[in-house]
């Protein structure tokens, strides 16, 4: 392959710049590898399985509502949620296996698979869509990550990670993560469109240590294009590495 001279020159320049800057950064911050950080986050947050109770507060235009639920999660492919309150939602169950999602409503005694356009509906009126919950691929599988800097956020020093999609079927082309340098807990995340437009932002707080892990108990999730105060998700009780019987993750358990 022929490469003409001016082109060769620019390429050389670029390489020099990259080398210069990266070494500069390395020496200044002792910056770790971004994938390493993501891995650390995984270590910290994921577990074989967990059972937790949570409350979700949705700030609507007119009023706020709180919905509580109990969830069983195994790995990152299986989850089962049962809504506990308010009375209207009580008994509604949701099962997620791989990339399939079913909802059971006790009043109709029907189990409906949520697919296609229905995935884009909001979960219980929140700023979260079913689809947002569904994507369970590891960030390291779908995104190339680089550390782009460091910043003080909410009184903690954080790494800023920039994630760029490396597969073409993800919902968000790029993401930005603010990760606590000591605890390896993300404190803020922003989701961007292909054009670079900010679409959604979540802010994580109430980081506590549970069973030796650092865990953010509160997440405020907001659709940035829409007006409103977003959705607040609070974990009220969480237990890791529990015995969850297999039948929980079957469609039959929805009707129980």
């Amino acid at each position: 392959m022929m490469i003409n001279l001016p082109e060769m020159k620019t390429i050389t320049k670029k390489i020099i710049i990259i080398i210069l800057f990266s070494s500069f950064a390395w020496f200044t911050y002792g910056q770790p590898d971004a994938n390493g950080i993501l891995h650390q986050i995984d270590e910290n947050l994921s577990s074989e399985n967990r059972i937790f109770e949570s409350s979700m507060t949705i700030h609507g235009r007119r009023a706020s509502r709180t919905i509580t639920s109990r969830s069983y999660v195994e790995g990152d492919k299986k989850s089962f949620t049962e809504y506990l309150s308010p009375p209207r939602e009580q008994g509604t169950k949701m099962l997620k296996l791989e990339n399939q999602l079913w909802i059971y409503s006790p009043s109709t005694d029907r189990t409906i698979q949520i697919s296609g356009h229905m995935l884009r509906q909001s979960v219980m009126g929140s700023d979260l869509s079913y689809e947002d919950m569904m994507d369970d691929r590891k960030l390291t599988e779908t995104y190339n990550a680089v550390v782009s800097g460091s910043e003080e956020f909410d009184g903690r020093t954080t790494w800023i990670l920039e994630l760029t999609a490396r597969v073409d079927d993800v919902a968000y082309a790029t993401r930005k993560l603010w990760v606590d340098k000591e605890r390896f807990v993300p404190l803020k995340e922003e989701l961007f469109a292909k054009s670079g437009q900010l679409l959604k932002r979540s802010v994580l707080s109430d980081v506590v240590q549970i069973e030796g892990r650092w865990f953010p108990k509160t997440i405020v999730y907001k659709d940035m294009l829409k007006q409103g105060d977003g959705t607040e998700f609070k974990v009220t009780d969480i237990k890791f590495n529990q015995d969850i019987p297999d039948y929980i993750f079957t469609k039959a358990s929805l009707k129980m």
Binding site: R65, R88, S107, T108, I112, Q121, V123, G125, S126
Partner: peptide, 16 residues
């Protein structure tokens, strides 16, 4: 038939 709609508060609702 089941109607899958959205409640006044935005929750998904089902009704036969």
């Amino acid at each position: 038939v089941t109607l899958i709609g959205s409640t006044m508060h935005g929750s998904m609702s089902m009704y036969n």
